[in-house]
Simulated scan of single mutants.
Amino acid sequence: MSFQHPRLLNRGVALVTSAAKGAGRAIALRLASEGFKVAVHDLPHNGELLLNVHRNIQRLGQHSVVLAADITEEDQVKSLVEDTYKCLGGLDVMVANTAVRESAPLISTATAEAWNRLFDVNARGVFFCYKYAAQQMISEGKGGRIIGGCSAWGKKGSPFMSAYSASHFAVRGLTESAALELHEHGITVNSYAPDRCYRLIGSIASASTIRNGSLAHCETPQAIAHLVSYLVSEEAHYITGKILYGIILTTTANTYE
């Protein structure tokens, strides 16, 4: 029996938003290494970073396409999905990874503009990605996997994070509701929701840390990619409507800029 390297397999087509860096980059490369054609997306001014991801995918022997769009604009998200289909021949996995973070005291510096910005990117953008990915998957009739980026603050609020937390509570509700609605089409909908543990006493915390009296694993972007890899696997075909929480070791927030 001959062996075929996973990168040469054709497991379908994935679209990953905000793939120029961080978790999005790690997810795109992981899926490509496992046999997916990958459409990588980001804002136009991140083009050089995105091209680097695209080239790395090609070095893995996989097909890729670079797409720029503002996910807060509905027509651009619609085109993003359509272009993925036209260029790569389908859509089997949507990873709506884009998010922006901002902290501000509720009673002083929090503004309506900041609130709108967080909801435009974190909730509205994810909604558009879910909507048009689902439409495309239903039209193809093969089912699919939709995965959204969320946050542990979408489960429990935190001081100075009112708008950010509320926007991810919206993603949580969207994910759970979409999973119920799309189940009949063979589409699963889940979210990953990393928390954060920061540098301690001038050095990176170990691979695990004590949090709230228990041992918690610190996730890197590669660990998030590993989780996404599992969610798109055959073994996870029954998992839907779940928000998977964890801790990510980082010193910076995701940005959409």
Rank of each mutant, 00 (worst) to 15 (best):
M1S: 14
Q4F: 03
P6Y: 13
L9T: 11
L9Q: 13
R11A: 10
R11T: 08
G12N: 10
G12I: 15
V13H: 12
L15Q: 10
T17Q: 01
S18V: 01
A19Y: 06
A19R: 06
G24H: 07
G24Y: 04
A26L: 06
A28K: 04
L29E: 07
R30H: 06
L31P: 03
L31F: 03
A32N: 04
E34K: 12
V40H: 05
L43R: 08
P44I: 06
N46Q: 02
G47F: 01
E48V: 13
L49Y: 01
N52F: 00
V53F: 01
H54D: 07
R55N: 12
R59K: 14
R59S: 11
L60Y: 06
Q62W: 07
V65K: 11
L67R: 08
A68M: 11
A69E: 07
I71G: 05
I71R: 09
T72W: 03
E74S: 14
D75Y: 03
V77I: 11
S79R: 12
T84S: 09
K86P: 12
G90S: 11
G90I: 09
L91F: 07
A96M: 01
V100Q: 01
R101N: 09
E102I: 01
S103F: 05
A104P: 04
A104K: 01
L106M: 09
I107N: 07
S108I: 08
T109K: 09
A110F: 09
A110T: 05
A110L: 14
A112W: 08
A112E: 13
A112L: 14
A114H: 01
R117G: 07
L118C: 06
D120T: 04
N122P: 11
A123I: 07
F127V: 03
F128A: 04
C129P: 15
Y130F: 13
Y132R: 12
Q135D: 14
Q135N: 14
Q136V: 10
M137W: 10
I138W: 13
S139W: 00
E140S: 15
G141Q: 05
R145L: 04
I147E: 09
C150E: 02
C150A: 14
W153A: 13
K155E: 14
S158V: 02
P159Y: 00
M161K: 09
M161E: 10
S162M: 07
S165Q: 04
S165D: 10
A166C: 05
S167I: 06
S167H: 03
R172I: 12
G173P: 14
G173A: 13
G173K: 10
L174C: 12
L180P: 00
L180Y: 11
L182S: 06
L182M: 10
H185W: 14
V189E: 01
Y192D: 06
P194C: 00
R196W: 05
Y198I: 08
R199C: 04
A207P: 13
T209V: 15
I210W: 00
L215G: 05
C218Q: 11
P221D: 03
A225M: 13
V228A: 02
V228P: 12
S229V: 02
S229P: 00
Y230C: 11
L231V: 06
V232L: 07
S233W: 02
E235H: 07
E235K: 10
H237N: 09
I239M: 07
K242R: 12
Y245L: 13
G246H: 08
G246P: 15
I247K: 05
I248A: 15
L249A: 14
T250S: 14
A253G: 03
N254I: 07
N254T: 10
Y256W: 08
E257V: 05
E257L: 06
